[in-house]
Design a protein around this nucleic acid. Structure first.
Length: 565
DNA sequence: GCGGTCTGCGCC
DNA sequence: AAAGGGCGCAGACCGC
């Protein structure tokens, strides 16, 4: 398959290849960017060999239904691809843009069994759509190569239709697809995780690993102490895991609580509070990131998560299993580079307010982004005091999240940065009135439920306000996600272009909203730092344009994630 | 016993 | 000091 008849280049020099399972092999066909075939359908029994050959010679944009289903097969065979068009992900983008409701892309692990309609191989459409039990609204895979071709052509038409109003939409499509590739690669590579350090942290905090189920020793001691201080007995111990139990116990002690949330407990003067708060903290570590978690998710020194790009309505990534996006700070020390390797960890400091500056075009706030500590600059400009950093930070975060508190700092910010605060207010009004908002590249929030205001008047107001908070935050969070996907896309491209350094190549191993970790041979450390910084600058330029906004990306080689910040 | 919802808290 | 946006997860809880 060394000849180029399978592919043809489109105007931008990138050819596309549709690929669909067919019997024991795969059908492939070259198409142009508009979706029109530019060559015949070919069949191959050996996908990996064919794909490797094409990837070496033509580097096409692979067009397939869902990256998470086919890319693992290619990676397993040693084939890494440069670019793709993920039809399922793009279908979600197009449908929400057209006003349909959001359906989270399904993780592969949680694919429901399909019984008799089960697919026989990758890309096969379900034998009988009537038997398909997927939730309504979720894009279904088209049948066969012909269906795939039509889906792709349809998407090309719809994207072209969006482009005049949303010039960034093709970039959104490309970045989302690249994110899908990166997600599979990251899940496969895994995050370097020292079970030895993990064991030590757990043992230090909780006591030795219990033989069977049940609480570790120190945790059990804390539970007993809490129970005793709240009037429990050996016969009838109070269960600190049970909110109802805790509320009852406090009430008997004369303390009336609304909830057992930490912030509320902290306001109570009672000897049991300290122990209970400590218990909650440690219990959470035990249940969420304890030995059971390690057994389930860490294999051969790597934490393998399943990442789901676009799994969140705002375009943020989700994970399925393992809670990769919720690793507690106290566990970061478990993330350590292999001997002779480094971690290059980087995060975009204060991403969301910088995004706000760019979206609103507020000159004053854009100027403030030149400061590596944006909040200090804001405090200086709005309040005249750099020491007021914390007030400025809380004020701006409250404005972006929709808190009701209207602090003096927020008022000062509004006077000094009217365009920025006005953008948030307008997004909120739009949402309250049932409208939709979009990210900078065109990712679109779902419409309200058709009957969302069909409730008693006093509830209607609350709902309306809640939706205003959602859309207010959506424009920022979704645009930040646009930026982050562009960062990931650029970084994986640069890392792939790096030479392998004897022991291996630099790999993206972690991504969390605005931060990345690359695991790399130590000799490549500086090159990786440069790649990260360049990718950040590129993302800013591509997604936000040349508006003078700075999004600093602090990247440094470290041995352990605990060294970061 | 099972599945759905609630609660509370980890991360951004 | 107050309790605002987005998630995933585990245990408690509740109804079947």
């Amino acid at each position: 398959m060394g000849d180029s008849s399978l592919t043809s280049r489109d105007a931008s020099g990138v050819e596309r290849v549709l690929i669909a399972a067919s019997g024991p092999g795969f059908e492939m066909q070259p198409v142009d960017a508009a979706g029109a075939p530019t060559g015949p359908v070919r069949w191959t029994a050996d996908l990996a060999a064919t794909a490797l050959d094409l990837e070496r010679h033509d580097r096409p944009r692979w067009v397939w239904w869902r990256t998470a289903e086919v890319y693992p097969v290619l990676l397993e065979a040693g084939v890494r691809v440069e670019r793709c068009h993920d039809l399922a992900a793009v279908e979600n983008l197009l449908r929400t843009h057209a006003g349909e409701r959001f359906t989270s892309p399904q993780s592969v692990a949680h694919e429901p069994p399909r019984g008799r309609s089960r697919q026989t191989s990758l890309f096969d459409a379900p034998a009988d759509p009537a038997q398909n039990d997927e939730e309504p609204g979720r894009p279904q895979p088209p049948a066969g190569l012909a269906g795939l071709r039509e889906s792709h052509a349809s998407q090309a038409r719809r994207i072209a239709g969006i482009r005049p109003g949303q010039p960034g939409f093709p970039l959104l499509v490309a970045a989302e697809s690249a994110a899908c590739l990166a997600a599979v690669e990251m899940g496969r590579a895994g995050l370097p995780w020292s079970t030895r350090i993990h064991d030590r942290v757990l043992t230090d905090l909780l006591g030795p690993r219990p033989q069977h189920h049940g609480r570790p020793r120190l945790l059990q001691a804390l539970a007993e102490e809490v129970s005793r201080l709240l009037g429990g007995t050996d016969q009838q111990p109070m269960n600190p895991d049970s909110p109802a139990d805790v509320l009852r116990a406090f009430r008997r002690q004369g303390v009336v609580l609304e909830t057992t949330r930490a912030w509320e407990l902290k306001q109570v003067d009672h000897p049991a509070v300290t122990s209970l708060l400590r218990y909650k903290e440690l219990s959470r570590l035990h249940v969420a990131h304890g030995w059971a978690w390690q057994d389930q998710w860490v294999r051969a020194g790597r934490f393998h998560a399943e990442y789901v790009p676009g799994g969140v309505v705002t375009g943020r990534w989700a994970t399925s299993g393992g809670g990769a996006l919720q690793i507690p700070k106290v566990m970061r020390g478990c993330v350590v580079a292999d001997p002779g390797w480094v971690l290059v960890a980087a995060d975009a400091g204060q991403l969301e307010p910088r995004i706000l500056a760019a979206l609103s075009g507020d000159r004053g706030m854009i100027a403030a982004t030149a400061d590596p500590d944006l909040y200090t600059a804001l405090a200086q400009q709005a309040l005249g005091r750099p020491e007021a950093r914390q007030e400025a930070k809380i004020g701006l975060l409250a404005a972006m999240y929709g808190a009701r508190a209207n602090s003096p700092a927020m008022g000062a910010l509004r006077r000094r940065f009217p365009q920025a605060l006005d953008l948030l207010e307008r997004a909120a009004r739009t949402g309250e009135n049932g409208g939709i908002v979009r990210s900078v590249l065109g990712r679109t929030c779902p419409p309200p439920e058709s009957s969302w205001q069909d409730v008693p008047p006093e509830k209607a107001l609350a709902r309306s306000r809640a939706r205003g908070r959602f859309t207010r935050n959506f424009v920022i969070q979704a645009s930040a996600a646009d930026w982050a996907n562009a960062l990931v896309a650029g970084l994986r491209r640069r890392l792939a272009a790096m030479p392998s350094a004897g022991s291996g190549r630099a790999e993206l191993v972690f991504f969390q909203h605005d931060e990345v970790i690359v695991h790399a041979p130590a000799t490549l450390a500086e090159a990786v730092v440069s790649a990260v910084v360049e990718s950040g600058a590129e993302a800013t330029s591509l997604v936000l344009g040349e508006r003078g906004v700075h999004i600093p990306l602090a990247a440094a080689p470290i041995a352990s994630y605990a060294e970061k910040n």
